[in-house]
Amino acid sequence: MVYAANFFHPGNWLRDWFEANRATATERRARRSAYVQTLHALQSMPDSDLADIGISRLSIKDVAHEAAYGGARP
């Protein structure tokens, strides 16, 4: 009787999974950082400057989200 051994090494797939998750986490952190920076910059501006660029106080979060994530807020 002959036995065939299937040597499966999960290390490579596991490493690929960790690297993909690390890349995703890095991208999420960068986008969140851009959102927070834009949000704080807009919130610190006076109403007259916001009016000059056509942004109301109520739409600051929407503008920051669009700048960081490229779309409307859900």
Rank of each mutant, 00 (worst) to 15 (best):
R28D: 04
E27I: 05
R29H: 14
A20W: 09
N21L: 14
L39W: 07
A64T: 02
V63L: 10
K61H: 07
Y35R: 12
A34T: 06
L14P: 06
L14V: 13
T24H: 03
D62Y: 11
F7V: 13
A20D: 07
G71N: 04
K61L: 02
R57Y: 15
T38M: 02
F8S: 11
M1K: 03
M1G: 03
E66D: 07
F7C: 12
G71C: 03
R15H: 13
R57Q: 15
E66P: 02
L58E: 15
D47F: 05
Y35D: 04
N6R: 02
S59Y: 14
N21V: 07
T24Y: 07
V36S: 04
Y3G: 06
L14M: 15
Y35V: 11
A25C: 07
I60E: 12
V63Q: 05
R29N: 14
Y3A: 09
R29C: 13
L14N: 13
W17T: 12
N12F: 13
V2T: 08
P74N: 00
Y3F: 12
A4Q: 03
Q37H: 08
R32Q: 14
Y3K: 04
L50C: 00
A4R: 02
V2N: 08
A4S: 06
T24A: 12
G70Y: 00
S48H: 01
L14A: 14
A23C: 07
Y3I: 13
Y3E: 07
S44E: 03
Y69S: 01
R22H: 15
D52I: 00
I55K: 04
L14F: 14
L14H: 12
D49H: 03
N12R: 10
G11L: 15
S33I: 06
R29G: 11
L39G: 06
N6L: 08
R29T: 14
P46W: 09
I55R: 06
H65A: 00
R29V: 13
N21I: 09
L42I: 02
A51G: 08
L58S: 06
W17F: 09
Q37D: 09
R15M: 15
G54W: 10
N12V: 13
S56R: 14
Q43G: 14
P10W: 08
I55M: 10
H9P: 12
A68M: 08
H65P: 02
V36A: 06
R73F: 07
T26G: 02
I55G: 01
A5P: 04
L42A: 04
D49P: 02
N21H: 12
A30V: 01
T24I: 04
Q43P: 09
S44G: 07
K61Y: 09
P46T: 09
G71E: 03
P46D: 15
A4P: 03
L42R: 00
V36R: 04
H9N: 13
T24N: 05
H9D: 14
F18T: 04
R31I: 02
N12M: 12
G70C: 00
Q37K: 12
A5E: 09
S56E: 15
E66S: 01
V63Y: 08
A51T: 05
V63C: 10
V2F: 11
H40N: 14
F7D: 10
I60S: 11
G11W: 14
N6K: 08
N12Q: 11
S44Q: 03
A25R: 08
A23R: 11
A23E: 10
E27P: 00
A20E: 10
Y3D: 10
V36I: 12
G70P: 00
G71F: 01
P10K: 12
R32L: 14
T26L: 01
G54P: 07
